[in-house]
Design a protein around this nucleic acid. Structure first.
Lengths: 244, 244
DNA sequence: ACCTGAACACCGTTCAAGT
DNA sequence: ACCTGAACACCGTTCAAGT
């Protein structure tokens, strides 16, 4: 679990860089404890409740004490996300016969894992996972797509595109928070259908006539999510024998 | 531009609903002025600088005064986003011969428009555009895909999927903020390639060997973005003659 | 009816002072 | 060397009091 063997992470230059700020010495144990506390708070009360102060209170200290082990709230989030990515179990050995299905399996697992942690996906989105666990996943994806016989550049771009899609969906879905009941969501979709259906047909003829399908896909099921996976895999598969 | 002719928007129930809060009477002119000020601040200093206080200062009042015209900061953001969506010019009449290219054109335009407004995409992501301008775009997309002969449910899901992809990319790209120079980005990608290349090959063999392609796609050009568009369109096109 | 100063209940982060 | 109380410079939103 230690990142000590990995080379230092590449970063965009930050403003503080100039005035020679040294990263504080940190004890591995405490970093993990802080990350665990942070995740517990997210799981219990959601991302908005995650505050340097709430984490500190959870651990019986003041917020300032955390900065001895963690450089910023952003670094703390990175820690929490890396840990959650670690929960993702990869499907089995890459199988040339089933590479598409295996990629879908991974996507479904990622979605499941994030759904266990409230709206953490919101913080995870748009972060390149360069830690151990993220790399493990990327390495596996490459292996699977190589088994599928895809060209290198297609594989490389797809390694961005798949997680982008999955985490974007997770982000969206996390907005129907834990406090929003299934009925509330159903009613919201119902309301949206009625809204679309009652729009002026001269101005939005297609939206009006497609009100039903636009608001279909029960959010209990996975129709929308599976549709996106299908599209991505068919699209990528179509690039199997092609220079790009 | 007025939404007065549209039916009321469907919403998820909010906590305040219970205690019977009335939406304040608002003067259309001031709402627009506030939205214009907000957009000006975003354009000049970025989304983080957009604050009820900065908007108020910009207009020569206190923050509290804004609440006579706008229910919350979130509503203000919605206003700003609707206005920016209005900047998106739709490609011409749907053409059955060119429907795929036309959809790509729209995607490129959306990306261009958002790139004009700093990191506003961050706020726009995961919002369903139910206003005039968003509906206009959705109606057009449906028309184009109908010209392409796609099944209704495929069209409906694709109306979610395309904007999801485009805004997700915009979100990501907005993280390389205006203050990050092209060289900084190039160096970051360089650093990432070296990072991948210097990982332990026994643990991450595929990442190591694919370090080049993984970090390819100059961010000046649009390779990555175009790859995603290609995948989406090939995938959706593959569903043309299929029950779903 | 509209506007607003002041306040409330928060933030992330810093830093001098303690142990 | 590590920890922390207090402070700094902010937030979104409310509300009593003004006009």
């Amino acid at each position: 679990m230690t990142a000590s063997e990995l080379p230092p992470l590449p970063r965009l230059p930050s403003r503080e860089e100039a005035r020679g700020r040294r990263p504080a010495r940190k004890r591995a144990l405490s970093r993990e404890a802080i990350a665990a506390a942070a995740l517990a708070i997210v799981d219990r009360e959601g991302l908005d409740a995650l505050t340097m102060r709430t984490v500190a209170r959870y651990m019986g200290t003041g917020a300032a004490s955390l900065y001895a082990h963690v450089a910023s709230k952003d670094e703390l989030l990175e820690l929490v996300i890396e840990q959650v990515i670690g929960e993702i179990e990869l499907p089995g050995e890459p199988d040339p016969e089933r590479w598409q299905e295996q990629l879908k399996e991974l996507a479904r697992t990622i979605r499941t894992v994030f759904s266990r942690h409230r709206d953490l996906a919101r913080a995870s989105f748009a972060r390149i996972p360069l830690g151990e666990n993220g790399l493990r996943g990327t390495d596996w994806m490459i292996a699977v797509m190589r088994a599928g016989g895809l060209p290198d550049q297609v594989i490389a771009y797809a390694c961005d595109l798949f997680p982008l899609y999955v985490t974007a969906v997770c982000y969206e879905e996390s907005l129907y928070g834990a406090e929003t009941s299934t009925e509330d969501i159903a009613q919201f979709f119902d309301g949206m259908r009625h809204y679309f259906a009652s729009l002026p047909p001269d101005r939005f003829p297609n939206v009006v006539s497609l009100a039903g399908p636009l608001t279909a896909g029960d959010f209990e099921g996975d129709d929308r999510f599976e549709f996106g996976l299908d599209v991505l895999l068919r699209g990528v598969a179509a690039m199997a024998n092609q220079a790009r």
